[in-house]
């Protein structure tokens, strides 16, 4: 098993060559403006020689987003399914996980359940060649925020406390509403 870090753009040609030589690939990226980051799109462009030549290979995707609802990632999921069909690879599924921005601040204990689910995801991929729908559902959680939670978000500005904490830590809280690109 190998991990290719796509932020190493100088390696994209090398990674693209090894993409087609792999039996199974999981492409992982954060959701940037509702799709893959530009750096991932630059890598996807390099994969054109593999169109129609990935028969028998398994291809899965993991998208994580700062927004809590997986619904935001479903639009680009449709593209990934289409891309997989262009390669003629076997679609292993798309795992969508919301609320990832705050993960780094979660304590080890509260991460246990997520870790367990991701271990299961990897196990499914290796043993069955695809992600289990049940695991995907458990990782994704509710597609949209329940009405009560939306009301609570709006009322309390709960998520803003996270941003305020980071802004204060960086001594940037007082300028948080700055509009530096306005033309006076």
């Amino acid at each position: 098993m190998e991990i290719f870090r796509l932020n190493r753009t100088e390696e994209h040609d090398n990674y693209a060559a090894r993409f087609g030589a792999s039996d199974g690939i999981i492409l992982v990226f954060p959701l940037y403006t509702d799709a893959m980051p530009g750096i991932v799109m630059a890598f996807i462009e390099k994969l054109s020689p593999w169109i129609g030549r990935m028969k028998g290979k398994r291809l899965g995707f993991i998208i994580h987003s700062g927004f809590p609802e997986p619904a935001h990632s479903r639009y680009i999921q449709r593209y990934l399914e289409w891309l997989c069909s262009k390669f003629q690879a076997e679609y292993a599924g798309t795992c969508v996980m919301g609320g990832s921005e705050g993960l780094r601040y979660m304590n080890e204990g509260s991460m246990d359940n997520k870790r367990l689910l991701f271990n299961r995801l990897g196990h499914d991929f290796i043993s069955r060649g695809r992600f289990s729908p049940d695991t995907l559902k458990r990782i994704a959680g509710k597609e949209k925020l329940p009405v009560a939670m939306r009301f609570w978000f709006r009322l309390t500005g709960f998520s803003n406390a996270y941003w305020d904490m980071l802004l204060k830590k960086n001594h940037a809280y007082d300028t948080r509403f700055a509009r530096p690109y306005s033309v006076e």
């Binding site: 940037y32 403006t33 799709a35 893959m36 980051p37 530009g38 750096i39 799109m41 630059a42 996807i44 462009e45 994969l47 054109s48 593209y79 289409w82 891309l83 262009k86 925020l145 939306r150 978000f153 709006r154 500005g157 998520s159 803003n160 941003w163 948080r176 509403f177 530096p180 690109y181």
Partner: peptide
């Protein structure tokens, strides 16, 4: 590859300073 060019994606990714981190519904 069935999507926009990496150049356009790179540029639109960089639009995020134009919005605020605070969340609303």
């Amino acid at each position: 590859m069935g999507f926009v060019s990496p150049l356009i994606k790179k540029a639109t990714d960089r639009f995020i300073p134009l919005i605020h981190p605070y969340i609303t519904i």
